[in-house]
């Protein structure tokens, strides 16, 4: 990281905090996520990582529901599984396949942690998002994405 960027970090963090606050009340940006895309943000934002976007469609092309939801015991609920990196590395949840043998391994952080910072945990396009709690599907305003979470991490 260059000194030039180092000097800008406080500014970037400040801007991110401001935008995140506005996000709670601001208008929802245009979200066209694929139906069934699951955003997992139980810990990511707090840990300075981008939230995880789980492309459900991609996995169901390759595995039937049973492979994950019965054999691995993954509950049918976004955020309902207490997944963290220790468990993944130990071969639980995502780690059952994402181990470098069946699928790529945990060092490819950005492939999972690819969501816009501030996007809440949810299943995109779900009825409950559309009807019962409209507006909760929005990530933080587009501007917040400009502040890379990497900057906050390297504080």
């Amino acid at each position: 990281m260059t000194p030039n960027i180092m000097r800008k970090i406080p500014l970037v963090i400040g801007a991110a905090a401001l935008l995140a606050t506005l996000g709670l009340f601001g208008a929802a940006p245009d979200v066209q996520a694929e139906y069934g895309d699951v955003v997992l943000n139980n810990y990511s934002d707090k840990a300075g990582m981008r939230p995880v976007v789980f492309p459900h469609w991609f996995h169901r092309v390759r595995y039937r529901c049973k492979a994950c939801h019965a054999d691995l015991g993954i509950a049918f609920k976004a955020g309902g599984n207490d997944i963290n990196m220790v468990k993944v590395i130990d071969g639980q949840y995502c780690g059952a396949c994402h181990n470098g043998k069946v699928a790529w391994s945990v060092e490819n952080c950005d492939l999972c942690h690819s969501g816009k910072p501030g996007t809440p945990t949810q299943t995109h396009g779900s009825t409950i998002n559309l009807l019962a709690a409209p507006g909760t599907s929005a990530p933080a305003p587009a501007g917040a994405a400009v502040a890379p979470p990497a900057a906050a991490k390297k504080k």
Binding site: P29, Q32, A33, V53, D110, S114, K116, P139, A145
Partner: peptide, 20 residues
């Protein structure tokens, strides 16, 4: 992914993901 509103287009991983 880059245009769907939930992926961070500035993330290096986003461009590597398969589009539906």
């Amino acid at each position: 992914p880059a245009n769907d509103g939930i992926h961070d287009a500035s993330s290096p991983g986003t461009m590597l993901l398969q589009a539906p």
